[in-house]
Amino acid sequence: MGLFSQLAEKPWTPEQAAIDDRHKGVEFSLTTPQFGLRVFLGFVTVIFTLFVVVYVERMVFADWKPMPEPWLLWVNTAILVISSIGLQWAWVSADKGDADGVKKGLYLGGVLAFAFLTGQLLVWQQLVVLGFYASSNPASAFFYLFTALHAVHLLGGLVAWGRTAIKVKSGMDMAKVRGSVELCAVYWHFLLVIWIVIFSLLLFT
């Protein structure tokens, strides 16, 4: 049922009432946590979109100097991709009820996420050594801002990941952890996409 036909209902007519009494109306075919996560991701998307808009707007001013692109960022990107693959593996395994696969995938994903964060810190260090401070140029300020925000989101994800990992380690029933594993995986993929956008912005501008 589309949005418009939904909004065109006449709740006061007998015909509509006979239909309405039998169900609770339109819902999304997602579980509550799945839906909650989608709403949250929507919110985060708006934040990053606005940051990108401001970035593009700020770029046109004369004082903009492009940043160097440390090769380490490529390595970090690869790590994050594999991290995401790890969680996807855990998700697929959870669907199959394969506890071993869930464990391996989840651990791989989490450990690599930590590795990614460490890698990002190393990039920061390299840039500081090269003399690129947050205050030296808007481009570097944006770089620090974007990477920090992305890292904060990933850290938040790692909290959820930690809780899921504890559940998995304690040998909880696969049917019960499946939902949490799925949410982690979706969130990881989302953060990967955000990172790729940020990284491309850095590469192409």
């Binding site: 039998r22 169900h23 609770k24 109306g25 999304f28 839906f35």
Partner: peptide, 21 residues
């Protein structure tokens, strides 16, 4: 909070409580 309000309205309604009711 907002997450709660939106998801409760969309997913938490009782039977018969369609959006247009």
């Amino acid at each position: 909070g907002g997450l709660n309000y939106v998801v409760t309205v969309l997913q938490g309604r009782t039977r018969g409580m369609t959006l247009m009711r």
